[in-house]
């Protein structure tokens, strides 16, 4: 399952997931801001030897909804998405990494696939600390900011007292 969605008012690096489950890191990479991931990857500085099993490919997923939010499923419409698959060579030869992310950012998909592969190697702790946790903190901060702005528009009803008593 996915990491929780709702903003955490005190999100810091220490609140971030432990990055033990593949679905959790896979999803964090998918949701990453492309420019931020690109920068973190450049700072990380390790570009492992690899081959492309599937070069970054842009396509569509058909998003479904449910009638009434919980009834029968229906096809709402398509969303652009990008996927990529790599296989590491050299020291960690044979480890496969994959990525799927909404949007059309090919470079992001490739970096995400490389990170997914590295998370299955002894470098996983470094990837988690230097890439995944900063992505998580950034995303939580953005979600929190949006939620706090929405909360300020919440109606606080009060009742006017009328008459003598």
């Amino acid at each position: 399952m996915t990491a929780t969605q709702q903003p955490d008012a005190t999100a810091t690096a220490s609140d971030s997931p432990l990055w033990r489950e593949r679905a959790v890191w896979f999803s964090e990479l998918a949701k990453a801001d492309g420019a931020a991931l690109n920068q973190l990857w450049a700072d990380f500085g390790i570009n492992p030897e690899h081959e492309l099993l599937r070069a970054p490919e842009i396509g569509l997923v058909m998003a479904r909804g449910r009638v009434g939010g919980e009834g029968e499923a229906f096809n709402l419409g398509e969303v652009s998405a990008t996927r990529c698959s790599v296989r590491l060579l050299g020291k960690y030869a044979g480890v496969e990494g994959h990525a799927y992310a909404l949007g059309r950012d090919r470079r992001k998909a490739k970096i995400a696939a490389l990170c997914d592969a590295l998370m299955q190697t002894p470098l996983s702790e470094r990837v988690a600390a230097q890439i995944l946790t900063p992505l998580y903190v950034k995303r939580q901060a953005a979600d929190r900011s949006a939620a706090e702005k929405a909360a300020a528009t919440r109606v606080e009803f009060f009742t006017m007292t009328r008459g003598e008593d």
Partner: peptide, 23 residues
């Protein structure tokens, strides 16, 4: 444009009860 792209598949139905609401 959409007609030119491959379809990866169908998603799970979105869960609007877990929406992060702006309104």
């Amino acid at each position: 444009y959409r007609a030119t792209l491959p379809r990866f598949g169908y998603t799970q139905p979105i869960d609007t009860a877990r929406m992060m609401v702006a309104r």
